[in-house]
Simulated assay, not measured.
Amino acid sequence: MSGQAIPLALADGREVAIEVRRSARARRLILRVDQTGGVTLVLPSLVRLGEAKDFLHRHQGWIEGRLAKLPASLPFAPDALVPYLGQDRRIRHRPEARGTVWLEGEELHVAGKPEHLPRRVTDWLKAEARRQLGEEARRRAALLGRPLGRITVRDTRSRWGSCSSKGDISLCWRLILAPDFVRDYVVAHEVAHLAEMNHGPRFWRLVEQQGVDRKAAQRWLKLNGPRLHRYG
């Protein structure tokens, strides 16, 4: 059941997907709420799904309390700031304009009806992430001389990227909100997995050989990563 999710309906009408992980080391059920609002339930090997669901319902109040204490979200709205490529851009609503979303200097212009603005900004950012992160991954894979599989962009909370044994790379679209050196590091990290599917010394040498600032990027993500998940 590891990797699955259990939906939990909250008192305010929202539904939270609880990530379920199996652990051979766990001796009891462990419930965690991270800084991004992600909820994880760790189960010992022999605990059944029904018991896990009962546990979640008994602790629903605790989950709601922890979620309520998290920083408020940062919605995409007229005049709000969004850190595209790590630089704040002000959202300008252009209801009379034709088109969808475009960048003009330090402003992100959005056409159309006001109720469509949040989705249009989100879709534009995801498309930019897909294009720019994909180009960077293909460039770095070519420099390493490693075949690259499919590249996908998702809204992941527990990790910024992943690489499968087939050479498929998945990256969090919210990296498009981060500075260049952060995006470069995450992409280099996943591309290095095309050669080394581990985090041993050879892997880290491959990462650093790509000319990225590993320590600075890791520090930035630790300090600022949770904020990126508040946008939208």
Score class of each variant (00 low, 15 high):
Val101Thr: 09
Gly86Val: 11
Phe76Thr: 03
Gly112Lys: 10
Ser164Leu: 05
Arg159Glu: 05
Arg130Met: 10
Val186Gln: 04
Ala141Asn: 07
Trp173Tyr: 08
Trp102Tyr: 10
Lys113Arg: 01
Gly134Phe: 09
Phe76Met: 03
Leu171Ala: 04
Gln132Glu: 07
Ala129Ile: 11
Asp180Gly: 07
Arg131Glu: 15
Asp168Asn: 01
Val82Gln: 14
Val186Leu: 01
Arg140His: 13
Phe76Tyr: 15
His93Ser: 04
Arg120Trp: 02
Trp173Ala: 09
Ser162Phe: 02
Val182Glu: 12
Arg119Asp: 03
Thr156Gly: 08
Arg138Gly: 10
His93Leu: 04
Asp79Ser: 06
Leu133Pro: 06
Leu103Ala: 04
Glu104Cys: 03
Asp168Ile: 01
Glu107Cys: 05
Leu103Met: 11
Glu106Pro: 01
Tyr84His: 14
Gly161Gln: 04
Leu108Val: 01
Gly86Pro: 10
Phe181Ala: 02
Glu104Thr: 05
Glu115Phe: 02
Cys172Tyr: 11
Gly86Asp: 12
Trp160Pro: 14
Ala188Val: 07
Pro147Thr: 06
Leu171Ile: 07
Arg131Tyr: 13
Arg159Met: 10
Leu171Val: 03
Arg138Trp: 08
Val153Ser: 15
Val82Cys: 11
Arg183Tyr: 03
Glu106Tyr: 08
Arg139Pro: 08
Lys166Thr: 08
Gly149Asn: 01
Glu128Phe: 02
Arg98Val: 12
Arg139Asn: 12
Ala137Phe: 11
His189Val: 02
Pro118Tyr: 15
Arg131Val: 09
Arg131Trp: 11
Ile176Met: 09
Ala111Phe: 02
Glu136Tyr: 07
Gly86Lys: 15
Leu85Thr: 11
Gly161Thr: 05
Asp168Pro: 13
Val153Gln: 11
Ala129His: 02
Ala142Trp: 13
Pro78Arg: 06
Gly99Asp: 13
Leu81Thr: 13
Arg90Glu: 08
Phe76Ala: 08
Arg98Asp: 11
Leu133His: 09
Pro95Ile: 00
Thr156Gln: 15
Arg120His: 07
Asp155Gly: 11
Asp79Leu: 04
Arg92Gln: 09
Ala141Cys: 15
Val186Ile: 09
Glu136Ser: 08
Gly105Gln: 07
Glu135Phe: 06
Gly99Gln: 15
Arg98Tyr: 08
Pro114Ile: 14
Tyr185Trp: 03
Leu144Asn: 07
Asp79Ile: 04
Glu136Val: 14
Arg159Tyr: 03
Lys126Met: 11
Phe76Cys: 03
Pro114Asp: 15
Thr100Asp: 14
Arg89Phe: 00
Ser158His: 13
Ser165Asn: 04
Thr152Leu: 08
Asp123Ala: 00
Ile169Ser: 10
Arg146Val: 09
Arg89Ile: 01
Ser158Gln: 12
Arg89Gly: 00
Ala97Glu: 00
Thr156Val: 11
Glu136Met: 14
Asp88Asn: 14
Gly149Lys: 07
Gly86Trp: 07
Val187Leu: 01
Ile91Thr: 07
Ser165Ile: 06
Pro147Ser: 01
Gly105Asp: 09
Ala178Gln: 13
Val101Gly: 12
Asp123Asn: 03
Arg150Val: 05
Ala80Asp: 06
Glu190Gly: 10
Cys163Thr: 14
Ala129Arg: 04
Ile176His: 09
Asp123Gly: 00
Pro147Lys: 03
Lys126Asn: 06
Ala137Thr: 12
Asp168His: 13
Pro118Phe: 13
Glu96Asp: 04
Asp123Phe: 02
Asp180Asn: 13
Arg131Ile: 14
Glu135Gly: 05
